[in-house]
Design a protein around this nucleic acid. Structure first.
Length: 465
RNA sequence: GCCCUCAUCGUCUAUCGGUUAGGACAGGAGAUUCUCAAUCUUCAAAGCGGGGUUCGAUUCCCCGUGGGGGCACCA
């Protein structure tokens, strides 16, 4: 166990989004890399905007992503620790004591019912153009931050600021710093949007007579289209959404690792253990990264492809169960388990994501599958596909026809093609259209085998009629 | 407006002064295949502009431009 202690400190004021997830991930990676401690702290001082629902979302999303926390609220096997409570709403007494300490030291004072942190230095009045009012400023040297990612950053903090609101509630800056002090946090890894708060925080640390921890400000994730950083309202911003859509968490985590970090070589898809081994703060990029759902989808597909068939079927079933009932999903869930598995196994190497499964497998589960008119028109425009289909129908009807293996079906179709001096494809395309309504799907032999003799014969007859 | 920060293909990125500037996603073409995917091959695609420093700058420095963040009794 190293002395490194990092924390992820979300506030439950909205859904858990991808930027927060990456901040959590980088903290977690650093803790795991150093053998340190990953703390989850809930910053719920804003009583107006907090909600229990959002808190649950945070727990669930972190768990789903596999970001287990060593200290923090107890949820399942996560959490615990000797530096609690880990919810700021339960730490009021600690904050009061620390504010008192600042008052005693002459570093805080009351004004307009609120408590302000006092900067030390010569005071003067000046007009602020932005806020259109006269403000009181203090001559202090700029704060120097030796950021682990961005290097040396200087920022001037020249105004006293509120640390306890007039309603008695402590402000973010105060609680954040007090918690980091009392929880012995050694590295503050957070989004770049906090970089400009850091000067306030450094003053506070010094006000408490504590050496500030190391800072590491990670770049932001920008929205895919349009200006600005990714926010909760943007398409693809919510972790929950990926969970519902059947994305694999390991794929999302891998993708997130690569947004602002890389192993230093060409590797992209890599096990989390390798990332943990190689991850370090100086390796994190300094520039913002634009979110790219295509690359995420590709990563997801790559992980999907190497899933064991068994796991894939389990994931698929879970997905179908979560979906609102439709003819396809109900039929799929009502279907024989072995049949469901076989269908899913045919789909696994073909789909880009779990969410494509219902659409991809409609014709396996219902008779209400649509016939793609474009495919039909194109196919029917040349040769005599219906004649081929009739020939195949006869062959399949024969009592000696073996439809129990792909090889047998392939042999049957090939000998038929040879006999009639046409190509295998002449049978394949029209049969596929009759059985599935499209020109995409698993191999025609597998399709016939899995659908089974009865269904196949009925569909071909119906199609010919 | 002020402060901070960043800058390589459309996107994510490699390069720690000397490279035909590499990889991945997306896009084009081809191969393979019973279709569609996957896979493989391949093509196109980048150092924001201007000054320096240097024998030599994508790389170091300055200015500009552009992007991003912040400037609350929100977190």
């Amino acid at each position: 166990m190293s002395h490194v202690r990092v924390r992820f400190a979300p506030s439950p004021t909205g859904f858990f989004h991808i930027g927060s997830a990456r901040t959590a991930l980088f903290n977690w990676l650093y803790a795991r890399h150093t053998g340190g401690t990953f703390i989850l702290r809930i910053e719920d001082t804003d009583k107006e905007r907090n909600s229990e629902v959002f808190l649950q979302v945070i727990y669930e999303s972190l768990s789903w992503l596999g970001l287990n926390w060593d200290e923090g609220p107890k949820v399942g096997s996560n959490g615990g620790g000797d530096f609690g409570p880990y919810r700021q709403s339960e730490r009021g007494e600690i904050y009061r004591r620390h504010v008192e300490q600042l008052m005693q030291a002459g570093r805080a004072y009351e004004k307009d019912g609120a408590i302000w942190f006092k900067l030390l230095g010569e005071r003067y009045e000046t007009f602020d153009d932005h806020r259109k009012k006269t403000v009181s400023k203090v001559k202090v040297p700029p704060v120097v931050i030796e950021d682990q990612i961005r290097g040396r950053v200087e920022r001037l903090e020249d105004e006293d600021f509120v640390i306890v609101r007039s309603d008695g509630n402590p402000v973010f800056h105060l609680v954040n710093v007090v918690d980091d002090i009392t929880m012995n946090v050694t590295h503050i890894i957070r989004g770049e949007d906090h970089l400009s708060n850091t000067s306030k925080h450094v003053h506070l640390f010094e006000g408490f007579g504590v050496k500030p921890p190391a800072f590491a400000h990670i770049p932001l994730i920008l929205k895919q289209n349009g200006p600005g950083k990714m926010s909760k309202r943007d398409q693809g911003a919510l972790i929950e959404e990926y969970q519902q859509r059947g994305y694999l968490p390991e794929a999302l985590v891998n993708f997130l690792c690569l947004l602002g970090w890389n192993p230093g070589d060409d590797r992209e898809k890599m096990p989390i253990a390798d990332v943990i081994r190689l991850f370090d703060l100086p390796g994190v990029n300094q520039s913002n990264a634009r979110f790219d759902d295509k690359k995420l989808a590709h990563m997801n597909m790559a992980y999907l492809l190497e899933l064991s068939g068994e796991t894939f079927v389990t994931r698929a079933r879970e997905y179908f169960q979560r979906q609102p009932a439709t003819p396809v999903t109900t039929a799929a869930l009502a279907a024989d388990e072995a049949y469901f598995s076989e269908v899913m196994l045919l789909a696994q190497p073909k789909v880009k994501g779990i969410e494509e499964l219902p659409a991809y497998s409609v014709y396996f589960f219902t008779e209400e599958y649509p016939i793609d008119p474009k495919v039909r028109d194109k196919l029917m425009s040349k040769g005599d596909p219906k004649a081929r289909l009739r020939e195949l129908l006869e062959a399949l009807r024969a009592p000696e026809a073996d439809l129990t293996s792909d090889a047998a079906i392939e042999a049957l179709m090939k000998s038929l093609a040879e006999k009639n001096a046409v190509g295998f494809g002449d049978y394949q395309a029209v049969t596929r259209l009759a059985l599935s309504g499209t020109n995409a799907g698993p191999s025609i032999t597998a399709m016939i085998r899995v659908l089974g003799r009865e269904r196949v014969l009925v569909r071909i007859e119906w199609f010919l009629a």
